[in-house]
Each structure stands twice: as structure tokens, then as C-alpha cells.
Design a binder for these strands. Structure first.
Lengths: 232, 232
DNA sequence: AAGTGGTCTAGACCACGTC
DNA sequence: ACGTGGTCTAGACCACTTA
């Protein structure tokens, strides 16, 4: 049976989503095969495949060869957030970004952080400490170590005008990384953030790796009131 | 010029990624068109399209009709995290999940939260308060309101054995939602989490919507030491 | 006006995993 | 063994956007 309007993989996607949400395809049920759906909806199998693949990536369907496609019982949805330049993040929040370098030196990297990044004890690093501002107010404190093995150019880079965050985004052959958010007291960053040392703040520890070497480890301590917003 | 091994869209994906990382295709540069790449790599244009589309979705390439494909100058990568049943989240951390209902009643929903969910003042709700445990220790405190307009079945559901979290995952026609993480003091949840009221903790405010109606609003207050881990 | 990516098609072969 | 999804192909038309 052919249908009137549904052409395009998005139409197939929406129709399948509708059937899932209306429980026409209840949780756990096996849905028709790609061939059958293509015939029913009047399109090619590749179009159905594209639509169902997106729904599977979204966690709503589970697909296995031979076993067919089933509606997920307890969908594991994925929340996404965009990781961008800090200045861009501030602009997105409708504020004017500012930046101030606090220190750029050779302060040693704490062993625990060296280990988290998988960096040998003898690998040279550069330390950068800075403050990012939103409309002139403290937004986030950045405490970073950069591997000079992966980024030799960081030894002579000038971080007074361009933040290490942006410099690395432009120059590092970034491949993958980990993010670790937690809540803690402001502690040493309190002086820079203009709050009490006991104030609860959000902290992001991030390790970044290139295709061959670890690149950088950074702790971002956000000012009180920061919210991490995501959509799903 | 044809190549030896590269068949399959993943091979094309990896080859393109390599050229980006080695700066053979430097940031900002325009890369060859799909037709040219297909000829060079010895595959069909659709295969190249699939590969480059994934790289564009990852934020490494920017594609525009007629203008062609360019390497992003400051890539906006997307970090992903899986949103699943709380019990599953606890199992993933290698602990035995536990659950205890604290209260299931008709406590009124605070106006601010009603507004965040976009719920009218007269829409009936059900309130559920519970504690999730990991290896017997407090893991997260759940404070939730469910719209009885969207989920009339919630009025009579038994939340003593199955948490509202899991019940909703199984029964709600979930479509989209927002997540909002922040750091605060444990406050009222301290008693349940076994910590001081002044201890910094991570809080997640989540609003969930179905295709037609708001479904639920929940505040999850995580025990001290909780880390939100993501990969990119 | 023309170039580029976006998508669809019909057919084919393959890989995997269940039966 | 065989059914199902995963992917590739060659060709085509279209949509968007820039020149």
C-alpha cells in the first residue's frame, strides 16, 4: 500500500517516530523489515535504512542482523552539548567575552594530573593560568598544563591576547578527550572568581589527546551560578 | 589515481580525518569535491558523502552547497553522554543498585517549576520523592512531579518497587527534554544523602516533554563525590 | 547561471547472528 | 542455512548558494 506524501528519509523517520510514540509499535515489539517498510511507504530500501539508522543512533530502536529491528524498552537516549571556544560559549549566553592571563610559567604538573593525561614524568610541560570574563565579571578560571612534546610551539606562544583554550583549538591536532564535571568548594580559585572559598562551584576537568600524544589537561572552575545546559 | 585498500565509508572517513589531523588539509582550507574524492579513492560519490557527512556532524568539517567543504577553523565538537535508567547508571559504575521510596503524595508543585515545565496552574500532578543507592550507600536523591494530564496512569502507579524514573521510561511517550546541571549545597537533601547541609553537591534539573504535553520535572541531587563523565 | 552538496533509486553483494 | 540489516554502486534529479 503506497502513501500520499511520505517521500524523503525524514518523512520516513517522522512516520516511524510517530508509530513508536503512539505505541502502534509498542516497546519491545519487532517492527517490519526494511524491505516491507519500503514497499509500504513507497520508497527505496536505502531511504528506510537511513531513517531507521538515525532512530537507532538516537537510542529509540535496536537493530540486529537477522534478529530484525525492535523498539527499545528503556531507551538510552544521548544528551549532547557543544564544546567550543570559551569566548564563544560566553557569547552564546548573550554576554561580552573578556580574558585576562594570570600566569604563564613552568610550574610543575601535579603527578595525579600527569597520570590522568598519561604523560611520562620527564615530558616537559607549560603551565597557563587565566580568567575568562562575561560582561566584565568572572566567568571561569582556567588552570592548564600543555605537553611540549605534542605542542612544542606552546613554549613560545603568547597567551596574553589569545587564550590557551583558543590557541589549542586552532593549532592542536585534536582527536579525542574526556570531560569530568563535579561540584566542589571554590578553594584557591575563589580569589579570582570573587567569592568565598566555601562557595559551591562547578569544576570541569578535561584531558585532551591527539592522534599520537596527550596534548593538554585543564581544570575549569566556573563562577557561582553557572549552569550546564543540555538538550535531549 | 586509485588507491590500494580504501574501500568502505569508514576507510574514507579515516583517510579524511588523517588529512585533517596531519594538516594536509589545513584549517579553513577547501577540500576536493565529492566527485573528485570519489575518483581519487576509487569509490562511489555516495560513499564519500557518507564519510564527509559524519565528519561534518562531528564538527570537523563545514559543508555548504556550491561553496564546497572546508575544514573547521575552531571545531565545535559535541560531547555526548548516555541518559539511562538510574539503576543502569549505577550498574555501569560497577555498583549494586538499590532503591527506596520516601514519599508518593500530592504535594503541590512549586510555581517556578510548573513554569519551567510549561504546566498550567490547574493541571493535576503527583509528587514522588525517593533515594537511589549504590552498594547500599546513598547515590542520588530524586524529587519529582509528574503531570497527570500526560500520564494519568501515574496516579495509581506503585512506586515502592519500581522507581518513577524507570516507570516513566517504560510508559511515557518521551520526545524531548532539557537537562540543567549546577553546583549547590546539599540543603534539604543532606539528611537523605548522609552529609552536611553545607556540602557541595551536583544537582540535575530535568524537564521532559512528550509529543503533545509536558510529562515530568525532576530534581536529582547527587551524593558528594559524584562525577559527571563524558567523552568527545 | 552554474557548481556543489543532498538525496533518491534499483539492484547487488556481503556480514552477521540467529535458527 | 538463511534472513536481516549494512553497505556499495552508478546514475539521476534537486536545492541551495554563491559567483
Amino acid at each position: 500500500m503506497t502513501r500520499a506524501t511520505p517521500t524523503g528519509w525524514q518523512a520516513v523517520h517522522d512516520e516511524a517516530l510517530r508509530r513508536i510514540q503512539t505505541r502502534e509499535w509498542p516497546p519491545g515489539a519487532r517492527i517490519p523489515g526494511e524491505e516491507d517498510l519500503a514497499a509500504e511507504l513507497g520508497c527505496a530500501r536505502a531511504t528506510v535504512n537511513r531513517a531507521l539508522r538515525e532512530l537507532a543512533e538516537a537510542g529509540l530502536l535496536e537493530r540486529r542482523r537477522k534478529a530484525g529491528t525492535r523498539v527499545a524498552e528503556t531507551p538510552n537516549r544521548r544528551a549532547q552539548m557543544s564544546i567550543s571556544r570559551i569566548a564563544e560559549e560566553i557569547e552564546t549566553r548573550g554576554a561580552r567575552p573578556g580574558y585576562a592571563l594570570i600566569a604563564a610559567d613552568d610550574a610543575p604538573m601535579p603527578p595525579a594530573r600527569r597520570h590522568a593525561l598519561g604523560l611520562g614524568a620527564d615530558t616537559p610541560t607549560r603551565h597557563v593560568e587565566a580568567l575568562h570574563l562575561a560582561d566584565g565579571a568572572p566567568y571561569v578560571h582556567e588552570d592548564r598544563w600543555i605537553s611540549l612534546l605534542a605542542m612544542p610551539g606552546a613554549a613560545n606562544a603568547d597567551f596574553t591576547v589569545m587564550s590557551a583554550n583558543e590557541w589549542l583549538l586552532r593549532h592542536a591536532p585534536f582527536s579525542h578527550g574526556t570531560l569530568d564535571y563535579s561540584a566542589t568548594t571554590a578553594g584557591d580559585a575563589a580569589a579570582h572568581l570573587g567569592c568565598d572559598t566555601q562557595t559551591p562551584v562547578m569544576v570541569l576537568d578535561r584531558a585532551t589527546f591527539g592522534p599520537d600524544h596527550p596534548i593538554t589537561w585543564v581544570r575549569l572552575t566556573y563562577a557561582p551560578g553557572f549552569h550546564l545546559h543540555m538538550k535531549i
